[in-house]
Design a protein around this nucleic acid. Structure first.
Lengths: 168, 168
DNA sequence: CGTTCAGTTGACTAAGGTCAATTCCCGTGG
DNA sequence: CCACGGGAATTGACCTTAGTCAACTGAACG
């Protein structure tokens, strides 16, 4: 069973998934940091950062077996364990606990993305920045500023000005 | 087993869930239309509309058994079947198919909310309006304009101007 | 008819984007 | 050890999108 988990290594900047490819695996990150992002009109829109001891995949492509609109790459050198869609299905078939776990995982993503969504509608950029600092300080410490800006849905210039304002 | 599904009726404007209450049930809407929304500084921010033949609940509260930040009420007179958290758990315990179904449902919400999130970051209000018209025409037909504006994350005035612009 | 509330329009404001010019930081090679 | 090169971050000037507030229109309902 452990043989189903294939160890993988990603150098900084190496891709796990590119736009147009089908996302065949879910990764469990054992060390490092990866990001999920979308490229629109030449600009990166970062949707998520995932650190060690968490799972990362592109749900839409992984579940539908269709080409993804997203990229996933390593922000830091990363080690991970990959589990394929087929193997996961087999595990869920055999061990109900995988099914239960998969359900819980999807549900926690629903809650998280839902909160991000409402924050985007409700809060201005400064508020979102402060929320991020409070709730995910690791992102602030380990991610370059222009990526944080992208994650917050603003330009690097705007983030720079927000930081300047908050410092004063 | 069917006894677990409790029929409920909501008059137009009647609440299924209020802020501060725990969301104890998932509803299956048999007829009508409901909405999920958040109230911030006296303004409604509508997060979702759900029509007949679909499920509605407030995941965060339902799963955590904690008070909700959201309201859910009926936009049109609505009939629904309610299933409690406890009964759902019992069903999942006994019949693996419920677990599988619950996982798929959560996953489809992940994909949907994820797309809404990226659209909010990427697209201007006019683009979001056109997307809504294309993908959920029923919303356009059955929901008053000021609620559509709230759903799109803009003011009624802005939506009015977008419509004027598009008409010309 | 009048009241009420959704929708429209206008004038003005504010948040954040765009573009261009520096400056800062850090790694590499001479 | 220092100089240089390149990308990240900052700053300034200006622009665009949508928000705000207030006035007005229009349709629905008693």
């Amino acid at each position: 069973m452990l043989a189903l988990l294939r160890p993988q290594t990603f150098a900084k900047g190496a891709f796990f998934l590119k736009e147009g490819e089908v996302c065949r695996d879910v990764l469990f990150i054992t060390s490092g940091l990866m990001r999920v992002y979308y490229v629109n009109e030449g600009r990166e829109n970062i949707r998520q950062f995932m650190f060690e001891n968490s799972f990362i995949t592109e749900y839409e492509s992984f579940l539908s077996r269709k080409p993804s609109h997203y990229f996933i790459d390593a922000v830091e050198p990363t080690h991970a364990l990959a589990l394929s869609f087929e193997d996961l299905e087999a595990l869920e078939q055999r061990f109900t606990h995988f099914l239960r776990f998969g359900k819980m995982m999807a549900e926690s993503v629903v809650v998280h993305v839902g909160n991000r969504y409402m924050s985007l509608i409700r809060d201005d950029a400064t508020t979102r920045y402060l929320t991020l600092m409070k709730e995910r300080p690791k992102v602030m410490q380990r991610v370059p500023q222009y990526m944080i800006a992208s994650y917050l849905g603003i330009t690097p210039e705007a983030l720079s000005r927000i930081r300047k304002e908050l410092a004063s």
